[in-house]
Design a protein around this nucleic acid. Structure first.
Lengths: 126, 126
DNA sequence: CTCGATGCAAATAATTTGCACTGAT
DNA sequence: ATCAGTGCAAATTATTTGCATCGAG
């Protein structure tokens, strides 16, 4: 994989925040430093970086994809009101993949968990 | 909500299968009995029925949405090779929502779990 | 009769892709 | 020099929506 300034900037930005930005947000932010970058390049690199394990792609139920610079095993919580995404580090399920593997008699690669929440800010707003 | 033949047929079909069909598949199947039905109507009704709790909408990571006539609490496994969806009834997490609620100090509505698997058929094919 | 539901087609929106050009090695 | 990566714009694709008409209550 050849070096590219665009890819470096994209990876650096996503790794630097805990906000789980969308591709569009990454585009806007990187553009502040590199006004030439195109949205297509952002999409291409986010896709590549997440498939190569440098980032996590979070597929949202009713919203655009989000990206997470923290590739350690953890879950996510999504506010059903404002769509903000939070990290959940506790209670990671260890032996569950094995149990499911036995139940279905097949290979289990991984699992994802999403908690649907009302975040404190939105709770207050109601 | 007014009665409609289309909605009845859609609900009946999804409830009758364990295949977690896509909107397109539902459209094709219902069309065998009712050749007038339109794809828009299928989308409108699947959306309505799932928001009203008669069906489950499963948002897929890299594929179109699927629908599930079984609205009881359970998880799903998806074959990363053929995209087939399986039900997982064991190991439903009970007190996890409470734990997360305490961790984030917020209201937790529900959670979804998806297991990424290689199904037996695809395993054999490799 | 009234308004919710439909069929059809056009619109939407996120993401992907073709292509000519630029830049890394 | 070669070919991976880019910018741009057009294409793709699932889903949604506007509107005239139809059908349930």
């Amino acid at each position: 994989m050849n070096y590219s300034r665009q890819r470096e900037q994209i990876l650096e930005y996503v790794k630097s925040v805990k906000t789980h930005p969308t591709a569009e947000t990454v585009y806007q932010k990187v553009r502040e430093d590199n006004s030439n970058i195109s949205l297509g390049t952002v999409y291409r690199n986010l896709d590549r970086l997440s498939r190569d394990g440098y980032l996590l792609r979070i597929k949202m139920a009713n919203d655009k994809d989000r990206f997470d610079g923290d590739v350690s095993k953890h879950y996510h919580a999504v506010c059903t009101h404002c769509n903000q995404v939070f990290d959940i580090f506790t209670n990671y399920l260890k032996d569950t993949d094995d149990k499911v593997s036995k139940e279905l008699n097949c290979k289990v690669l991984s699992h994802d968990v999403i908690f649907n929440i009302i975040c404190p800010d939105c709770e207050r707003g109601f």
